[in-house]
Design a binder for these strands. Structure first.
Length: 405
RNA sequence: GGGUCGAUGCCCGAGUGGUUAAUGGGGGUGGACUGUAAAUCCACUGGCUCUGCCUACGUUGGUUCAAAUCCAACUCGGCCCA
């Protein structure tokens, strides 16, 4: 049989079912793509559990876009219903439940953030909320769903297995999650479902359920296409907001750029593969140039070329420590401070430190500079704001603020 | 429902009546070094305009000159039995 086209294979971890030598469209995705007489329906579900999505999430979105460009239909499912339960995949704890209002707000910002990635033309994209079909399931239907799987099958799932062995609690409603995600596939008649490698179980459940409930036009059950989980900028754990190793899609150009330009060397090829269309064979030799190219390319995708180049310039200036030169230094008004004031108090209130106590420690530790000069006496008194006006206060290498009246 | 064990700082985890924000590790922040990285070394890591004051060891009460440490009830979780 034929090889996968590169738009399909780039960065793809696994496709299942996969019988590379078969021409049967139910077990070979390339054959399926060829055999179809209609655009395939490509499902990707996201649960609006937080306000931000990051470039790790963008991987599946980009693949979805690739399908759109190849003429297929993206079916983006906003898991407004499932978000309230929480996907137990990879979690060692129960996720806290969200209110309807939270979920709605999150969904809106999500859509906003994926605008640069997806093709939003009407015939290319279908956006569905899974409360549409899940909120009306009656007990009969739920029992039917539950009867398709055994406790053993559920406990074989990685996250549950681990939690079970660690003696941490697993609530019964969590067992429902894979079934609901699978039922989404039934409801939207998905032909392919995209997801991270950790989604294999849930996507496989979708196949089972499609088979169980049958499909309108007797199409074969959905294919699963698994994409790698992006490691965070720390190079250690998967990218996640709570680990603070993420690059958010909604971030400002400079913030995005400066995070991306220090991606560890070991990860940079993965990042190029997953986040850009650049040819890996033509990357620069110098690792530092690679980082810059990556940062520039990704920022361009979300903010345009001009903003990306500006971010690159600003970032260079910041690194040189030339804070006074950089225009991007935010201002902090001292209007609400009470003078006379000790130095650490000013630093603490400036927003550069989390607390005045931390500010004091940072000053003592020699991390604080005023107009580029190290300033290590936390108890230095300033009689009035005028004495500090116009100066640049700096904590560490990355945090700056210009003091104004 | 019965029995039993457990709940400590961002996380893990010591500590079992006595001066002390509370050992250690991870993580984080800062410094040196460097490619702005990694690795390594060092420092810091509850709050407060702070030579001191305040708040902390699941919650609430109690015993005591004194409790994270003892007692009681409650909440939450694990395990065993049903």
């Amino acid at each position: 049989m034929t090889d996968l086209p590169s738009w399909l294979s780039r960065g793809t971890n696994e496709i299942f079912p996969s019988q590379p030598d078969s021409s049967d469209p139910s077990e070979n995705l390339v054959a399926r793509l060829k055999a179809t007489d209609r655009p395939l329906r490509i499902k990707l579900g996201i649960d609006p559990t937080g306000a931000d999505i990051h470039i790790g999430h963008s991987i599946a979105m980009r693949k979805l876009r690739a399908f759109q460009d190849a003429g297929h239909k993206a079916v983006l499912i906003i898991g407004d219903f499932t978000a309230r339960i929480g996907d137990p995949t990879g979690k060692s704890e129960v996720r806290k439940q969200l209110t309807e209002a939270d979920v709605k707000r999150n969904a809106e910002t999500y859509l906003d953030q994926v605008k640069p990635i997806l093709d939003f033309s009407e015939d290319k994209l279908e956006i569905r909320y899974n409360s549409e079909w899940l909120s009306d399931l009656d007990l009969n239907k739920i029992l039917e769903l539950l009867a398709t799987m055994t406790v053993g099958q559920m406990l074989a799932k990685e996250g549950f297995d681990k939690r079970y062995k660690q003696e941490s609690p697993i609530f019964l409603h969590e067992f429902l999650y894979p079934l609901m995600q699978g039922y989404d596939s039934v409801a939207v008649e998905a032909d392919v479902e995209l997801g991270g490698t950790d989604q294999k179980f849930n996507i496989a459940v979708g196949r089972d359920l499609q088979r169980h409930f049958g499909r309108k036009d007797d199409s074969p059950p959905q294919f699963g296409l698994l994409l790698p989980i992006l490691l965070g900028t720390d190079g250690q754990q998967k990218m996640s907001k709570s680990l603070n190793n993420y690059v958010g899609l909604g971030e400002a150009p400079l913030a995005m750029y400066s995070k991306l330009e220090k991606v560890p060397d070991a990860l940079i090829e993965d990042y190029f593969t997953q986040l850009t269309k650049l040819d890996l064979a033509e990357l620069p030799e110098n690792p530092r140039d690679r980082q810059k190219l990556l940062a520039l390319d990704v920022v361009t995708q979300y903010h345009g070329k001009a903003a990306a180049e500006e971010a690159q310039k600003a970032s260079l200036e910041l690194i040189k420590g030339d804070a006074k030169q950089a225009e991007a230094v935010p201002e902090f008004s001292m209007a609400e401070l009470n003078f006379p004031a000790k130095f650490f108090y000013v630093v603490g209130k400036s927003g550069l430190c989390a607390s005045t106590s931390e500010a004091k420690r940072q000053v003592k530790g020699g991390a604080v500079k005023l107009d580029g000069e190290k300033f290590a006496n936390p108890d230095e008194m300033f009689e009035s704001a005028e004495a500090l006006a116009g100066k640049v206060l700096q904590v560490g290498k990355k945090r700056f603020v210009r003091l104004v009246l």
